[in-house]
Design a protein around this nucleic acid. Structure first.
Lengths: 107, 107
DNA sequence: GGAATCCATAACCAGCAAGTTATGGGTTAA
DNA sequence: TTAACCCATAACTTGCTGGTTATGGATTCC
């Protein structure tokens, strides 16, 4: 089945990487330099994280001169939403089944 | 800030661990033995995963004689839902702001 | 009581992933 | 053209984590 959530979970599991993504969501497009400034890690580390985010489809990059602008791609979160609601759905189904059972026993 | 999503993402990032959780969501309560049977890894590995899931609040355990039954605790997914909709919200806000800007420019 | 079963923990191993420094390519500025 | 800047990649180190086997405690069955 869908291996999509796997990449998303793995990519978002790292705190510094998720922080970068959150920042892009909050504040919109940012250059690598700007992201590095507040990330607490070195510039190559940030570049690697951005590469991972891009691989997961979570960000887009746009080259402009010698700087690269990154922006969040929130549609990529959809598989996460799907997965979560699916889990919640299974839960609900079993609740419903239990409910049915109880009703039948009640008769 | 909420460190809740962090533990959730980290815990759900591992495929076998997430598979165990999915199975508990789908099929309800299961013993360690039953989970081990289809997990593809050893019983101690499953126990460790269940420990991690429990630590994250994703499962509950119930002891009955010599076996332990585990069940999903889907409410624990709420921080994940919150985080996701927050990200989507930021995105939407920036879209709205852009929309406003365009409208003002249009006048 | 003794054997078998279920599970958790301990101890250990190997691989990966996130960090670092070093470097280089491309771009702007002097 | 040279210098400075921005970013990406390479090479390397290290710590964590997911896996294993070994073991033991608790429980059930004979």
């Amino acid at each position: 089945m869908s291996t999509a959530p796997d990449l998303l979970f793995r990519t978002l599991a790292d705190p510094t990487r998720r922080a970068i993504f959150e920042r892009l969501c909050r504040e919109g497009e940012q250059t690598v330099g700007a992201l590095t400034a507040l990330s607490g890690v070195s510039q190559p580390a940030v570049s690697k994280h951005l590469g991972a985010l891009k691989l997961a489809g979570l960000v887009r990059d746009r080259h402009e001169g010698r700087q690269t602008h990154y922006s969040a791609q929130p549609g990529a979160l959809n598989p996460l939403i799907d997965w979560t609601s699916q889990m919640a759905g299974f839960w609900q189904n079993r609740l419903d089944a239990l409910d049915d059972l109880l009703k039948r026993m009640d008769q």
